[in-house]
Amino acid sequence: MKMFRNIVIYFTVTLITGICGQCTFPSPFASSMWHDSTRGDLTFTDTTLTGWDVTLSPTQTIDTWTCLDYADSSKLVIKATSRFTLVGSSQVYVYACLVLTEVTAGVSYTYQQRNVQEGNAAQNRLRFNSAGTLASASDVCDDTATIPTLDFHVLVLSGSESSAAVILPTSFLFSADYILQASDGTLTCNDTVDVMDMCSDTSALTFDYTTGNCQEQVAYSAGGSLYCVATVSLTSYDCAVFYNRDPTISGTATRFTCICSDGNTASVAPNNCTIYQDATSVPTDADMTTPVGYLINFGAKTR
């Protein structure tokens, strides 16, 4: 994964009144909009964040956050305006630690949530506290938590999507005919000659849906044009997260897509990579059972 510097953001759910010296978000986040591969579109003002919604239960969602502390160039503590009621318990304050890695300076980041998954809060990686007194990195972040490599999310600055594009891993750099394989084994695009192109532009992925080619939507993109915005290399395959260039997202399309490939086969998942996604198996949801994507089998390749 391309890395430049790390930023750690600490989230705490509580409420604070405006005071002299109110924390403000640093550049490039202040007064900006971002696309989040998990949460959707985010809006930052100088002091608030909306869109980073966390659903804790069928009836409880945290949707508004404020900047609580900006101690130096690498750490932020922010808070939300509500508390969470645990089953059979009183309300608690909720914290989440996000560790960000800059991918392209000022326009794109990946991040992981540095906490264990909470079984009684929809498996979100959070930290609960009844007193609401946690306020530092050592309080909030769990550096002992085991975070799978692919358990990450992507942020892209709105309006700078093309600037966020990065070079694809070598295992992706080819053009090829392809066949799609659903979780039940059903094949599509197997009776036409189609092109999945990652050669013409080595930081982009394109499909040709014109008449005569397979009309099946690939990579959750109606227009068939995507930018690569983050990459991860594992032992025997690579994964890339793509930003869908469709002007609007509708139907089965998603703004982000994750593809893991070994050069012969690829798995495709909407939005983020799934935690244990590989190149040869249909991706599954967090329950490790429910399929959430499909496979691509490549034909003859050109480089």
Rank of each mutant, 00 (worst) to 15 (best):
T101V: 00
T38S: 08
T257F: 09
H35T: 05
P148Y: 03
V94R: 12
L86P: 02
A96Y: 08
Y70C: 03
T144H: 03
Y70N: 14
D177S: 11
P291R: 10
I167R: 10
V54M: 05
W34S: 00
F174D: 08
K2T: 01
S74Q: 10
T55I: 02
G51I: 04
S57P: 00
T85R: 02
W65N: 05
Q91T: 14
F256T: 03
D184F: 09
N124G: 05
I19P: 09
Y294K: 06
D69P: 15
Q123F: 12
V94N: 00
D142N: 11
S233R: 14
P26A: 09
L100E: 02
M196P: 06
N120V: 04
T257E: 06
F174K: 04
I9F: 14
T252Y: 10
H153P: 04
V166W: 00
P26T: 09
W34D: 05
G185Y: 05
C189Y: 00
I296D: 00
S236N: 15
Q123W: 13
A176S: 06
L150T: 05
Y209I: 13
T252N: 12
L168V: 11
A165E: 04
T248M: 03
T192E: 12
Y111C: 01
D194N: 12
C260L: 10
I19D: 00
M198R: 08
K79T: 14
T59L: 12
A96R: 06
L86W: 08
G88L: 07
L98E: 10
W65V: 04
T146I: 09
T59P: 03
G251M: 14
R125E: 06
D46N: 12
S138H: 14
F242W: 05
T186W: 15
T14L: 04
P26N: 13
